[in-house]
Simulated assay, not measured.
Amino acid sequence: MKDFRELVVWQKAINLFEAVVKDTEMFPNTESARIIQNQVIRSISSISANIAEGFGRRRGKEYEHYLYISRGSANESIDWYEKLKRLNYVSADTFIERETICEEIRAMLTGMINKLESKN
């Protein structure tokens, strides 16, 4: 594999990013909504960004480190979507869709991490 964009996990993460940007465009025009919008976009964008950065380094422990960060960002994103659901900024269906994708990404990252750990 020559490019991080070939990774299915990165593809899922970047598609999630696009969906989240669209979700946030529907938020109310308030200061708190802008702060939350910034935070959720940052956590979601961090998933694909850390996959890409780690792939570029391509060294066992260093790559593994970035995958751990990416997995943490997936968890953080689920937390933000839980808050969005509770504030009624997103529907329960949207929450379930985003949570499911984050969980799939998290599972894929765990598999990648485990594979790297077994090589070390």
Rank of each mutant, 00 (worst) to 15 (best):
M108V: 00
I47H: 02
R59P: 00
S43L: 01
R58E: 05
S91P: 01
L67S: 12
Q39S: 12
A107M: 01
S32R: 10
N88V: 11
M1F: 04
V9N: 06
C102F: 06
L84T: 05
S70M: 10
E103S: 07
K12T: 13
I35T: 14
D3P: 02
E97A: 00
I78S: 07
W80E: 12
K12R: 14
N120K: 11
V21Y: 15
Y68P: 03
E18H: 15
L109Q: 04
L16V: 05
L16R: 02
N50L: 01
G111L: 06
Q11V: 05
K2R: 10
I101N: 02
N50R: 00
Y68V: 11
L67Y: 09
D3Y: 08
I51M: 03
G56E: 06
I101V: 13
E62H: 08
F55S: 06
S73A: 12
R59S: 15
R71H: 14
V40Q: 03
G111S: 09
T30N: 15
E62Q: 05
D3R: 04
E82A: 05
T110H: 15
A74L: 03
M108N: 10
Y63P: 05
M108K: 04
K12I: 07
F27Q: 02
D79Y: 07
A33S: 15
N120P: 04
V90S: 11
G54C: 01
T30L: 13
R98K: 13
N15C: 11
T110Y: 01
R86T: 15
K85M: 14
R59A: 08
S43Q: 10
R86M: 12
A19T: 06
N29D: 15
Y68N: 14
K83S: 07
K85Q: 14
S77Y: 13
K115A: 12
D23Y: 02
K61G: 12
I35V: 15
E53R: 00
R71L: 07
W80V: 05
F4I: 05
E97G: 00
L16D: 08
N50Y: 03
K22P: 10
A33E: 06
I113Y: 03
V8R: 13
S43W: 04
R71A: 15
D79L: 00
I113M: 13
R42F: 00
V21Q: 10
E53T: 02
R59W: 09
I113G: 02
S43T: 06
F95L: 08
E117G: 03
I69M: 11
S77F: 03
I101P: 00
W10K: 06
G54Y: 02
C102V: 08
E117F: 02
E103A: 07
I35N: 13
E117P: 02
E117D: 12
K61E: 14
R5A: 09
R98Y: 04
D23H: 04
G54I: 01
E117V: 10
N114P: 01
A33H: 14
E62L: 10
V9Y: 09
A49R: 09
R106L: 06
L67G: 13
Q37L: 10
E62G: 04
K61N: 11
H65F: 14
